[in-house]
Design a protein around this nucleic acid. Sequence first.
DNA 1: AATAAATTTTAGACAAATCTAAATTTATTC
DNA 2: GAATAAATTTAGATTTGTCTAAAATTTATT
Lengths: 219, 219
Amino acid sequence: MLFTAAEENYIKSIFHLQEDGSLVSTNAVAANLHTSAASVTDMLKKLKSKKLVSYEKYKGFKLNTEGKKTALIIIRKHRLWESFLVNTLQFGWDEVHEIADQLEHIQSKKLVDKLDEFLGYPKFDPHGDPIPDSNGKMHEQIQTSLAELAIHESGEISALGNPSSALLELLQHKQIQIGTNLIVEKIFSFDQSMEIKMNNELLFTISHELAKNLFIKKR
Amino acid sequence: MLFTAAEENYIKSIFHLQEDGSLVSTNAVAANLHTSAASVTDMLKKLKSKKLVSYEKYKGFKLNTEGKKTALIIIRKHRLWESFLVNTLQFGWDEVHEIADQLEHIQSKKLVDKLDEFLGYPKFDPHGDPIPDSNGKMHEQIQTSLAELAIHESGEISALGNPSSALLELLQHKQIQIGTNLIVEKIFSFDQSMEIKMNNELLFTISHELAKNLFIKKR
DNA sequence: AATAAATTTTAGACAAATCTAAATTTATTC
DNA sequence: GAATAAATTTAGATTTGTCTAAAATTTATT
């Protein structure tokens, strides 16, 4: 099923506003999209007829299963394009949102999947938000970042937050990879840098910035 | 000045139809964009009011200087995105046109310039068409068709005469692409078909029809 | 519980881009 | 050069997405 850019913007907005399973209000969406409440009502009728939301007059609304699936496809595109803009084209993380808001509406599943592959299947975008995979599944942040580990805790590196070329270069040089075992030996309160023992032998100092981008399966 | 996707499509179409400085007809644009003549007339009034075309009722029309400048910006975007899709994301050159037709409408000069830089400032797109630089200047290329080469002459494929999907499919299958080096080994007077050695190893027979559609930079 | 306030929906209008059918202008042919 | 054909424009409608103002409904407050 294909949707217009306007429809997709409403779907995305509703998704972000229905944090848990709660109902969303007309005014909330209107404020979020900088549009009028009347426009939201109009669009809701359309989304209801397309079976993406459950909605009854005056009672609030929320995305149904199909609507959520659609939202995740759009969010996947948005976050992959943001990753591309920051990691590949060297944009600052603060200047990519507007452009990604346009790029997310490009219609081509193959393009998105090839972009994902090119970027190295990143799990998180430059803002640290999780990127849904091609089935709409997100790596829920059950994964702990290394930065959240306490002293003497140990685990195994399971994912990279943001596989930019700069990060990959650093990891390559230090021979850190997915599967590497580590234990936190010390944390300096001054800059929150950590001393980490890798595979029971090598001792590294790791910046807080880097630690936030290394995801760990605890043991 | 910003334009809608619809406006940009008409501007691009008129640009391609006014080869030299000739006037373009309503029907020609309608056919090119698969729309009705009435729609073209409507849009022409709009483009005239925005001072992009010179146009008088029933007399034909053409882009003025500002219109041509705008067209070149759109064409630059289209061809850079095609280069990205083929060179970076490994799309076949026969499957990128539709996607580039969407991407060319993304509004961000900075994005286009950064993409250009990332791609290494390419002068020609995967179909061999010249890419305007950020000032709208194109590297015009004096090209010979393969059919005009004499025996033992050599060169490099630099463009396609008529990149139809049928032609693209043939080239894709034979792994012939822009940049492929070749030398004419033999020409059969019977049907003017040629034996061509590609990249100093592969030997192909090429029909006169195909040779006329392959443009060569001689060496 | 009645009234006031806030929220939401409806009604009617508008701009963009498109269409079909009819009218107009230009081109062609006998 | 008049009749006919082709191309172009106009007139009137339609769809999408938006708006404002008014009406309907829900929620909050005396």
